[in-house]
Amino acid sequence: MIPAGLGIVLELVALFAVPWVTFSSGTLSVSFTFLDLLQQSDRVKFSSDLATSYVQWFGFLLTALTMAAVLPWTLGALRTKRSAFLLSSIRRKPLTHTNFWWYRTVFAGRATLMLLLHAGGVVLIFARNFSLLGLGPYLLVGGALLVVAGAAIGPRKGTEMPH
């Protein structure tokens, strides 16, 4: 639970609070947050339309999907057969101690997919010049890695599962 929760917090901080682009020219230093990139996305020439889409909506969507897809699992919301079915979309394997490994694998796989999509978005944005990378992309990818770790660990101890 702690790694996934911390990872989500890092992703949100990366998207809303820290610089994504930092560059200096002599004594002048300039930084842009993700929100600054969003506001300037119609004027900034990104490497592709996919990079523009990532800045305009896909980065936010991925973070929201990560929260919706992984946090219920790591917080222990999957406790009954019905909640496991509704929140996980896993239909063939009931949530039991025997199948716990399967749920860990599925949720870690989902988190890994979102990590790869976030990393791809960062690569698309900075394809022309990786030297401009600020702290934001590192926090975003680091947070996504923590979410993968939290999903692989699973819910906190004491979560009751049906037998």
Rank of each mutant, 00 (worst) to 15 (best):
A64I: 10
A64T: 06
A64D: 02
A64L: 13
A64Y: 02
L65S: 08
L65Q: 12
L65M: 13
L65C: 07
L65E: 04
L65F: 12
T66G: 13
T66K: 04
M67S: 08
M67L: 11
M67R: 00
M67I: 09
M67W: 08
M67V: 12
M67Y: 05
M67H: 00
A68G: 12
A68E: 02
A68S: 08
A69F: 07
A69S: 12
A69G: 06
A69H: 04
V70K: 06
V70P: 01
V70L: 11
L71P: 02
L71C: 05
L71T: 04
P72H: 15
P72M: 13
P72W: 10
W73F: 12
W73V: 06
W73K: 10
T74N: 11
T74S: 11
T74C: 14
T74H: 12
L75C: 10
L75F: 15
L75E: 12
G76F: 14
G76D: 14
G76N: 14
A77Q: 15
A77G: 14
A77V: 01
L78F: 14
L78Y: 15
L78M: 15
R79D: 05
R79F: 03
R79G: 14
K81V: 01
K81C: 00
K81N: 08
R82C: 00
S83P: 02
S83T: 15
S83Q: 09
S83F: 03
A84R: 08
A84S: 13
F85I: 01
F85G: 03
F85Q: 15
F85M: 14
F85K: 15
F85R: 14
L86I: 02
L86D: 13
L86K: 04
L86V: 10
L86M: 14
L87A: 12
L87E: 10
L87D: 05
S88V: 01
S89K: 06
S89M: 08
S89G: 06
S89D: 11
I90R: 07
I90T: 06
R91C: 00
R91W: 08
R91N: 01
R91V: 05
R91K: 04
R91A: 09
R92N: 01
R92S: 09
K93V: 00
K93I: 00
P94Q: 11
P94S: 10
P94L: 06
L95E: 12
L95D: 07
L95Y: 10
T96A: 08
T96R: 13
H97I: 01
H97W: 03
H97V: 00
H97C: 01
T98G: 04
T98P: 00
N99T: 02
N99A: 00
N99F: 02
N99E: 04
F100H: 10
F100Q: 05
W101K: 06
W101F: 07
W101E: 12
